[in-house]
Write a protein that binds this DNA or RNA. Structure first.
Ligand SMILES: [Mn+2]
Ligand SMILES: [Mn+2]
Ligand SMILES: [Mn+2]
Ligand SMILES: [Mn+2]
Lengths: 248, 248
DNA sequence: ACATAGATTTAGACGAGTCAAATAATTGGA
DNA sequence: TCCAATTATTTGACTCGTCTAAATCTATGT
């Protein structure tokens, strides 16, 4: 006999750990839409269009159209026909909760389970919807309540307030000769992250900007080598001036 | 800017980490049915009836009827009309894989995140479907490849073979005066587990059987007190003779 | 001012997973 | 042996998340 005794839990559309402002049931799919809206809104500063969401989530426009209608009914987004959506305060809370789960999971995977910071995203992206508040909090505790995840993204605290990032500068805007420390590597394709990891560019790394802007390229010197980065990539890397006490 | 950049991942019925014998897509719901079939089959030694599954999963008989048809088509169960199902070898592999995830998660939660063994089940029951092979293996490694989970249930190894349990005896079959160590507490309701935890009965605990069978009750002495347990509960506890070297 | 390109929504369909009601098979008593 | 009670299956319907094709709205440029 070896039955585990998984007492009744067929859960197609329903049993996730929910404890938010408005206690409606929010599916994993809805959570992903909300996260996407949050990200695009932060990124562009504008209302999020149907097509932007469709692109981001790799889904067709009609699918988005019907989903945002549902989100609007649930009070999670403000929707204006033909004008896209914005998150409501409730919606933003949902986004922050998922983001907290996501980033804590990423931190946990790198710090306790020896994952590389380039590999954590997909795993966290699945688990974020199924982790309870309690588990998130335990992870945070075990990690000493880290303020940022392995990419340098800020982690909302237990009450979902987001510590505001220091005054970071985009690497692409740095000047020749600047000595900087990487604060944050904004999310991008797997290949790009892997390239950066190989190049020695990751949160915490110290760089010297060697050469700027020939043909949309920027060259930096890492402790081990000199690297050229496309401006598109350098735009997604945030740095601060090296303060000269983060030696080895 | 604080977008996480969760690149496109709306995943309603689809993107779980799958790498099994027959590479069909197996949903979380299907996984739960398979786990249930495995548990009931182990438990009763007989073909699993539609109604047994319906009871176990808290779902109606027609729902089970259609689902087992699908599982049969996928080659995961042998179905005989009106006679219930058995797992095929493929189905058993799926069950063992999920069981591995489940039990490793339970172990991890208790050992690294300070969960009580009575609280781990629900969390593991959700996460088991969303954990990758890689993550399971990392957890196993971090834990030193434990042979059993916090309830004493054996954990299938990476190749999904199940270490066979020692020759355990049900506590209900012990005799007066026996000094035993609890090996395993079979799954049961939350309330029962909590009761046992309060009573000082958990895997590893040493008990002396004080009194047996008056009115379906059995009385044991724990290090701290004397406890009476209903036979129904004692039937689900497995023990081995104390070998006299598991002192403090 | 208005035609048209482009974005958005509507309409209709589908697979998954579920249910209630109706029907059919099995089984164990009489 | 045969019938009633139990169990299982079929049928038809519903929700969720998705799609394609068609209709409709918005915005742009002349
Ligand atoms: Mn996700
Ligand atoms: Mn991140
Ligand atoms: Mn489960
Ligand atoms: Mn267990």
């Amino acid at each position: 006999m070896t039955g585990d005794g998984d007492r009744g839990d067929a859960d197609p559309g329903g049993e996730a750990p929910e404890r938010r402002a408005s206690s409606e049931v929010i599916s994993a799919v809805m959570e992903d839409y909300i996260k996407a809206i949050y990200a695009i809104e932060r990124d562009t500063g504008e209302r999020v269009s149907t097509s932007a969401l469709a692109d981001y989530l790799d889904v067709t426009a009609p699918t988005v159209s019907s989903m945002i209608k549902k989100l609007a009914e649930r009070g999670l987004v403000d929707r204006e026909e033909y004008k896209g959506v914005t998150l409501t305060d409730d919606g933003e809370l949902v986004a922050l909760e998922i983001l907290r789960h996501h980033r804590l999971l990423e931190s946990f995977l790198t710090e306790q389970l020896d994952y590389s910071w380039v590999d954590v995203h997909d795993e966290a992206d699945r688990l974020e919807h199924h982790v309870s508040q309690k588990l998130s909090d335990r992870i945070a505790e075990a990690l000493g309540n880290p303020p940022v995840d392995p990419h340098g993204d800020p982690i909302p605290d237990a009450d979902l307030s987001l510590p505001d990032a220091g005054d970071a500068v985009r690497l692409v805007d740095a000047e020749e000769g600047d000595r900087v420390v990487v604060q944050r590597v904004r999310d991008q394709g797997d290949a790009e992250l892997r390239y950066l990891a190989d190049a020695g560019v990751w949160p915490g790394a110290e760089l010297v900007v060697v050469d700027v802007a020939p043909f949309d390229m920027l060259t930096v010197e890492t402790p081990s080598a000199e690297q050229s980065l496309p401006a598109d990539v350098a735009r997604l890397i945030e740095v601060e001036p090296a303060t000269d006490d983060e030696g080895a």
